Simulated assay, not measured.
Amino acid sequence: MKGNNQFSSIKNQFASHAIIFDMDGVLIDSEPIWKDAGIELFTRLGVPMTRERMAETMGMRCDEVVALRYASEPWNSMTVDEATDELIRLVVEKTKATGQALPGALSAIRVAQEMGVKTAIASSSPMVLIEAVIDHLQLGDFDALHSAFSEKRGKPAPDVYLAAAKALDILPEHCIVIEDSLNGMKAAKAAGMTCIAIPDARYFTHADIADYADHIFDSLEYCTREQFELFFA
């Protein structure tokens, strides 16, 4: 009984804290999927697109990306809303076919939940994709799921992270955000949260993001219980 009480007290110690995961590029290696889907869609619309151009909007809501491209290179074959829906459809389809969890994703979620820390996903992706990823990767349950599509502003505005903290009933300063994109890191810091960056070496170096992250790791595999406890100390 004493052991159980000790375990409960350890969990209660972190009950007023939260870890909020970005999804794309943190839990799932979806950035290549978004790029392939974007190239497929925009090429079909007559807009020249490359992986480098797609990387420019990494971390933004896809409806904002489509609107941005339409503003500079308009097309006539479908509306912006229709193009956004088609992009989402392509990404969901490709995710279900080839999506893979990034190293350390499942263990980081498990460790946080075993500690009694509240967990959430706060993503620029629409809820239909968040749910598809959770189901495809069998990520289990979170205390909150929130899409930037529910907010007036997407990342780098802090809205999605502040809304997730409110849903968790956790103060922003007691939240750790795990991000991979520059826009997401800016959003986390603007929300007043601690930001752990897991940059994709294909797009960023540690030096590129040093001003936007409190801690930088090469993989979620480094996010152990010991590390989380240090961050919450």
Rank of each mutant, 00 (worst) to 15 (best):
V91S: 11
K155M: 11
R110M: 10
G192N: 00
V128C: 13
I178N: 10
A97D: 09
S77C: 14
S125P: 01
I216D: 08
K166T: 05
G184V: 02
I20D: 03
L129N: 12
F21R: 08
P199W: 05
L68E: 08
V26D: 11
G99D: 05
E52C: 04
A191K: 01
T224V: 11
A201L: 10
V91M: 11
F231S: 03
M78H: 02
A108G: 05
I33G: 13
K96V: 14
V160P: 01
M23P: 14
M78A: 09
F217D: 11
S16N: 14
L168P: 02
P156N: 04
G192Q: 00
K155V: 06
Y212V: 12
D200H: 11
M127V: 03
D135R: 08
K2P: 02
F142N: 04
G46D: 03
Y203K: 11
D218Y: 01
S9H: 08
D63G: 08
A233F: 03
S181P: 06
A191D: 05
D200E: 14
G99L: 06
T57Q: 12
E221C: 10
V117S: 12
Q100W: 00
E93R: 14
E73I: 04
A101D: 03
L220G: 09
N183K: 03
T57R: 13
A101T: 02
E93D: 14
R44D: 15
L182E: 10
L162D: 02
M58G: 02
R110F: 09
L139N: 06
D63W: 06
L41I: 03
K94I: 12
A188R: 00
A97H: 04
D211Q: 05
G59V: 05
W75R: 05
E151N: 07
C195H: 09
Y161I: 00
W75M: 10
P172N: 06
V91D: 10
N5G: 15
F217C: 14
N5Q: 14
Y222E: 15
T205Y: 06
L182W: 02
A233H: 07
L68Y: 02
D208S: 13
G38P: 05
A213E: 05
A157R: 00
Q13V: 02
L129Y: 08
F231V: 08
K186H: 06
I170K: 05
I20H: 03
K186S: 04
A97V: 01
M60H: 08
Y212E: 13
F7C: 10
G104K: 02
Q100Y: 01
A197S: 13
A233C: 08
D63N: 11
I170W: 04
K186M: 09
K166V: 00
E40G: 03
L45K: 07
A187K: 07
